[in-house]
């Protein structure tokens, strides 16, 4: 494995339901190399989405560490993690999670809009729009830029979500069951795009899925069951 861009050490995650404590992850150790396509495979409830959220700096582990590009992410202020998610990390979710009030272009511009103060936006807008249009064109959505998410098919929505995840040129792409809500043909198309991004652009991809066929396309597959890492293949 190349130099790790992402490392999870002894990751534990507990959820509290009233007085009861539910341990979802039991000390998971995982490293992801730069440019690697890693797939976390496991059945529903195995803790794979939780692991993805911890590695993607969306959620804080109960115990353990996450190192992102060598920095202890949860030793840094929250502002640092927010900035990493905005500039260095991209997310794709099973249910697309597009902003329903924004058009495809608006959704794609969202990471840039989160970063830019209103006073600078008029100056930056043209450049950001150009870059967003390039990504949308590459994903075959150039004729749908003004459409709202509800006016798109499932595949188009996922491609729009992918465009939003890629527009700021992230160093790691986290994909949570990206094909889980799509028919097989559309799912295969999305997988082709992700594979292409990994192979051609060297984008690090961390994907969780319960589908063995999807997992087969990854460089490396780790299996998770009941919050424990079983083995790597």
């Amino acid at each position: 494995m190349t130099e790790p861009i992402l490392e999870g050490r002894s990751l534990v995650k507990d959820y509290h339901m009233g007085a009861a404590r539910l341990r979802v992850l039991h000390g998971v150790d995982l490293a992801v190399g730069r440019g690697e396509f890693l797939c976390v495979l496991g059945p529903s409830g195995s803790g794979k989405s939780t692991l993805l959220h911890l590695l993607g700096l969306l959620d804080k582990p109960t115990a353990g560490r996450v190192r992102f590009e060598g920095t202890d992410a949860f030793g840094q202020p929250k502002r640092w993690r927010d900035r990493m998610r905005n500039q260095a990390i991209g997310f794709v979710f099973q249910f697309y999670h597009l902003m329903p009030d924004l058009s495809v272009l608006g959704n794609t511009l969202l990471p840039a809009m989160i970063q830019a103060p209103a006073v600078l936006w008029p100056m930056r807008r043209a450049g950001e729009r150009k870059r967003a249009m390039e990504v949308l064109e590459r994903l075959g959505l150039s004729d749908r830029v003004d459409h709202l998410p509800r006016e798109l098919s499932g595949g188009e929505r996922q491609r729009a979500a992918l465009a939003r995840a890629l527009v700021h040129r992230p160093r790691v792409l986290f994909a949570d069951e990206p094909t889980g809500n799509l028919d097989s043909a559309t799912g295969a198309e999305i997988m082709r795009v992700i594979e292409d991004l990994n192979r051609r652009d060297g984008l690090t991809v961390v994907m969780v899925t319960h589908d063995q066929r999807v997992a087969d396309r990854a460089d490396r597959v780790v299996r998770l069951r009941d919050g424990r890492l079983l083995h790597t293949s």
Binding site: R83, R85, H97, M99, D101, L110, I114
Partner: peptide, 12 residues
Amino acid sequence: RDVGILKALGAR
């Protein structure tokens, strides 16, 4: 859900 999306994309 919008709140979650915005935070996932780095909004404070």
